[in-house]
Computed example of a mutant assay.
Amino acid sequence: MKIGNIDFGERPLFLAPMEDVTDVGFRMLCKRFGAAMVYTEFVSADAIIRSIKSTLDKMHINDEERPVGIQIYGKDVDSMVEAAKIVESVHPDIIDINFGCPVKKVAGKGAGAGMLKNIPLLLDITREVVKAVKTPVTVKTRLGWDKENLIITDLAEQLQDCGIQALTIHGRTRSQMYTGNADWTLIKAVKDNPRIHIPIIGNGDITTPQEAEEAFDNYGVDAVMVGRATFGHPWIFQEMRQYIDAEKARKEGGTPVVPAVLTIDDKIDILEEQLRINVERIDEYRGILHTRRHLAASPIFKGIPNFRQTRIAMLRAETVEALTDILEQCRAFLKSSEKAQAESSGEAQAESGKAQA
């Protein structure tokens, strides 16, 4: 699969752009564990033009994370074109236009998914941004505004005609927000359209390696974008990549590579590294703010009894020392629990062996 001159290989996995989530520290970890493409948090065209520092900071790119896209949103042609030109000066590999954000403060003002109620303007913005920059332009959008307006099959052709070089489709309408199940059948309908020649990237409800593999097999997408399942779980890309590659080897009659399995120590170390990266990049207070929501959402802590109180403590931590102490307590508990389970399993196998004898 290629976007412009960037070759992502077969069945690539992308990190979704997410506000307050996909900062540079998190992106670098996801890249390390196999994300073929990462995106910045989405940035407002108006804020870019006004040189708002917090917005410009979100556009900082580290060469280690490339290829990387910067995603912009806005509600009029002139500001989006001007913002795209400014973004291009930062040298991202891709400029992505957000026509999919459903939150009220964005869509309610006519930007993001709000553009799905004004298709002529949506197409004008896309067309003019493509003409204004040399960087490949892509779009991320939804199936339509609501279930009575599932317009994505026609819209995909129109966006392609505007000159975009890839299209990401989240399998929900704006009215669904993030509820219900993503509908991948319409994503498949777009991909199966013989007129569509640009890559189609599927997004929505991909939380396991098996679901990623099924998205490629069942819906034919060129890439899969993973969003909320990455919270506190940047190594999910490694798990997905290993599973997809193993399935390919199995289907082709080859010998699958034995997957690398991360230990509890490995995973806690990764989360602590994310904390260090963010603190060093910004400062202690804001670095913790960027990191602690990931820690509180990490699936590795699900086995801890009454984790709710620990989660609250994580979200209230204000120093690196306090947050690290909580992580070390979690590490000690999880390793102790893991050891107890292994011993219990060993004893059970021994008893089973005696019974058979």
Score class of each variant (00 low, 15 high):
Thr255Gly: 05
Ser336Lys: 15
Thr135Cys: 13
Val133Cys: 10
Gly25Ile: 04
Lys31Asp: 05
Leu275Glu: 09
Cys330Leu: 09
Glu65Asp: 14
Ile326Ser: 01
His60Cys: 12
His290Arg: 05
Gly69His: 02
Val258Met: 13
Phe307Thr: 03
Val21Asp: 07
Gly204Ser: 00
Arg316Glu: 14
Lys147Ser: 15
Pro209Trp: 07
Ala342Gln: 15
Gln274Ile: 04
Thr40Phe: 10
Ile70Tyr: 12
Thr319Asp: 11
Val24His: 11
Glu41Ala: 08
Leu289Met: 14
Ser344Val: 07
Gln274His: 15
Lys109Ala: 01
Leu275Val: 03
Glu65Leu: 03
Gln210Lys: 13
Tyr285Gly: 02
Leu56Tyr: 11
Lys251His: 10
Glu252Arg: 14
Pro102Ile: 11
Trp184His: 13
Lys75Trp: 05
Gln329Phe: 12
Pro92Trp: 15
Pro199Gln: 11
Ala84Thr: 06
Ala16Lys: 09
Leu323Tyr: 12
Gly108Trp: 02
Ala249Pro: 07
Met18Thr: 11
Leu295Ser: 07
Val190Arg: 05
Glu157Met: 02
Pro12Thr: 00
Cys101Arg: 01
Thr324Gly: 13
Leu159Pro: 00
Pro17Trp: 09
Ala260Cys: 05
Pro136Tyr: 15
Ala297Cys: 05
Glu213Val: 07
Ile288Met: 07
Phe42Val: 04
His91Ala: 01
Arg32Gly: 02
Ile206Cys: 06
Val21Pro: 10
Lys104Val: 08
Thr55Asn: 04
Leu289Asp: 09
Thr135Trp: 05
Leu143Thr: 11
Ile48Val: 14
Val68Ala: 06
Gly180Val: 10
Asp217Trp: 04
Arg241Gln: 08
Gly34Asp: 10
Ile300Tyr: 00
Ala35Gln: 00
Phe301Gln: 05
Met28Glu: 04
His60Tyr: 14
Thr255Arg: 14
Ser352Phe: 10
Gln160Ala: 09
Ser175Met: 09
Gly74Ala: 04
Asn203Arg: 07
Ile270Gly: 01
Pro259Ser: 15
Leu56Thr: 01
Gln329Arg: 11
Asp222Tyr: 01
Gly25Pro: 06
Lys134Met: 04
Val68Gln: 06
Ile196His: 08
Thr263Gln: 08
Val68Ile: 14
Glu64Trp: 12
Val133Leu: 12
Ala342Pro: 01
Arg281His: 13
Lys302Leu: 01
Met314Glu: 06
Ala317Tyr: 06
Leu295Cys: 12
Leu123Phe: 03
Phe8Trp: 01
Ser89Asp: 09
Gly9Gln: 05
Ala113Asp: 07
Thr291Tyr: 00
Pro234Glu: 12
Ala260Phe: 04
Glu157Cys: 09
Gly34Ile: 04
